[in-house]
């Protein structure tokens, strides 16, 4: 049993890292912009299917990933416009986009429920940046260590964190943070909070779609259900990261790193549950939901029963 778990560990960590990129997107909306964005369940799938369709048709892998990200940004744009231009509450706007994306994602796949990358074709396989197969190949010594998904996605994650750290330290990025922290104050300082929310949603969903593209490569297919419950995994990663690291990680870049590690912890724990118990894996979603609900409730209970309340500006805090 334990050997089983150890064997599965590299895969779990790889998956965690990939989902961690999505979780960083969730962090941008949920923590920085103070918006609950449910677009992600749809946009991670959009990223995955867009990538597979383009890549399978022979497109350069980097270009295919870039276009997948653009597609993700567009889904964020739709949610953002529904929210700011049409006055629809953010949660509902995200749900609407997500629902619509179900059809769009199917259409991208040519009205099929899934599309796959032909990894039997060695040439095709070797073009991939990450793949489940590489985990075994590296273990067997057939591939160099730097082709291991943990290494590749780890580099992706670090680059993304560095870019976000840079961006949120710029004038525009500070404006985004102010928008989430206190929209009244932001507007009084001449910040267009509507535009900022849209930018934030686009940025977040671009990252989510990138995560989808990497996930599709990793598992060598994309299907219409690949995003189901993604938001919960994203929130779980954000919250686990905060619970574990909030005392030691103060710096913004480290906070983002904590989110990524949070996603890894999530997948390792899930793997442990699968390895050490005989639970039907169909119950995983229920377990995830319960765990996230508890983690979301704990800060609330703490505040309620210990009467330490941190004052936060503005009026619209979900």
């Amino acid at each position: 049993m334990f050997a089983n778990f150890l064997n599965a560990l590299p895969g779990a960590v790889s998956q965690g890292l990939i989902w961690g990129i999505m979780a960083i997107g969730v962090y941008i909306t949920y923590r920085i912009l103070d918006l609950s964005d449910l677009t992600v369940d749809g946009s991670i799938c959009t990223g995955g299917v867009t990538f597979v369709v383009l890549f399978s048709s022979g497109m350069n892998i980097w270009l295919a990933m870039l276009i997948a990200m653009v597609a993700g940004a567009l889904t964020g744009l739709v949610t953002g416009l529904l929210h700011t231009l049409c006055g629809i509450p953010a949660i509902l706007a995200g749900i609407l986009t997500q629902l619509g994306l179900w059809s769009v994602n199917l259409a991208i796949m040519g009205m099929k429920a899934n599309v796959s990358i032909n990894v039997i074709d060695k040439e095709m396989l070797n073009k991939l940046l990450v793949s489940l197969r590489f985990v075994q190949d590296v273990a067997k010594g057939d591939r160099p260590f730097w082709q291991h998904p943990i290494f590749v996605v780890g580099v992706f994650t670090l680059v993304i964190i560095a870019a976000l750290y840079w961006f949120f330290g710029r004038e525009v990025g500070c404006g985004l943070r102010a928008t989430g922290s206190n929209p009244n104050m932001a507007r009084a300082q001449g910040i267009n909070t509507d535009v900022n929310k849209v930018i934030g949603l686009m940025l977040a969903n671009a990252l989510v779609a990138l995560s989808g593209a990497l996930l599709a490569q990793y598992q060598s297919y994309a299907d219409i259900n690949m995003g189901r419950g993604a938001i919960v995994i994203g929130l779980a990663a954000v919250i686990i990261g905060e619970v574990v690291f909030s005392k030691i990680f103060r710096n913004f870049a480290l906070k983002l790193l904590a989110v990524s590690i949070g996603a890894i912890i999530y997948y390792v724990v899930i793997q442990a549950v699968l390895s050490f118990t005989s639970i039907n894996s169909n119950y995983l979603k229920l377990i995830s939901a319960v765990v996230v609900a508890i983690f979301l409730a704990v800060p609330y209970w703490k505040g309620k029963y210990t009467h330490v309340k941190v004052t936060k500006g503005g009026s619209s805090h979900a």
Binding site: S181, N184, M185
Partner: peptide, 17 residues
């Protein structure tokens, strides 16, 4: 509570202004 961003630093608030 309205005029400042609580989750940002004093200097960051000033820089926004």
């Amino acid at each position: 509570m309205m005029g400042t961003a609580a989750t940002m630093q004093i200097e960051e608030n000033l820089a926004l202004a």
